[in-house]
């Protein structure tokens, strides 16, 4: 077992922290968007840089991917990727409460990505007595082929990352998207230290 892998207790604890954060985040989002937002139980798994493209590839039917970096105290940091399906993008402006002509498609998904990412991570951070800052969200590409190309062409300077995937569903607007949090190697140890501290307090 790699030293970066979480043991069973750590995995359970992280799962629980995420579950609670998902509950509160979906509540906040429902109030703001004025519709029910379902978050599906996440998958947590380590990925190495060679696998990243492969594991994301299933998700990369995506029409668009938005990236946003996050960073908190105690070396907790990572990158959130929000992935959108082409068929789900028609009523976004409506969902966000903007007039149809007021925003371009790119702006809509960037705005929504930022809302989903920061709402979830703010709640998550408060559970571990942390506070997150965020970079500006960036549209990696609004075209499937280009997203694959974009990731495929990179030679990453990391080997292993922790991948947390959470699916969002807004049934009233028949809208789905996936949020993939990728936490780089050096930050995994920092997260483990935080988790261990929480486990000790029990």
């Amino acid at each position: 077992m790699s030293t970066f892998e979480l043991n069973e207790d750590q995995q359970d604890c992280l799962q629980e922290l995420i579950n609670v954060a998902m509950g509160q985040a979906s509540d906040q989002l429902a109030r703001y968007l004025d519709t029910f937002v379902y978050l599906k139980v996440p998958s947590i798994e380590p990925v190495n840089s060679e696998q990243l493209f492969e594991t994301l590839n299933q998700d990369l039917k995506a029409a668009a991917v938005v990236s946003q970096g996050f960073f908190g105290y105690e070396g907790i940091r990572g990158e959130a990727l929000l992935m959108y399906q082409p068929q789900d993008s028609h009523r976004l402006a409506d969902l966000l409460g903007y007039e149809a002509g007021e925003m371009t498609f790119d702006e809509q998904i960037i705005d929504l990505s930022s809302i989903l990412t920061t709402t979830f991570l703010n709640v998550f951070a408060s559970q571990i007595d942390n506070q997150m800052s965020y970079s500006a969200p960036r549209l990696l590409s609004a075209n499937n082929a280009k997203v694959s190309e974009h990731l495929n062409q990179q030679s990453f300077n990391w080997d292993l990352a922790l991948k947390v995937k959470i699916s969002y569903q807004v049934t009233d607007y028949s809208f789905n998207c996936d949020m993939v949090l990728l936490i780089p190697e050096e930050a995994i140890n920092n997260i483990k230290a935080v988790i261990d501290r929480i486990l000790e307090d029990f």
Binding site: L29, Y32, E99
Partner: peptide, 24 residues
């Protein structure tokens, strides 16, 4: 209208929001 909605997300969700030059 856009601006008011943008700020309402900041107030309600207590989270930061962005607007980049590539979009506006």
């Amino acid at each position: 209208k856009w601006f008011e909605r943008k700020l309402s997300s900041v107030v309600q969700l207590k989270t930061q929001s962005f607007c980049g030059w590539e979009q506006r």
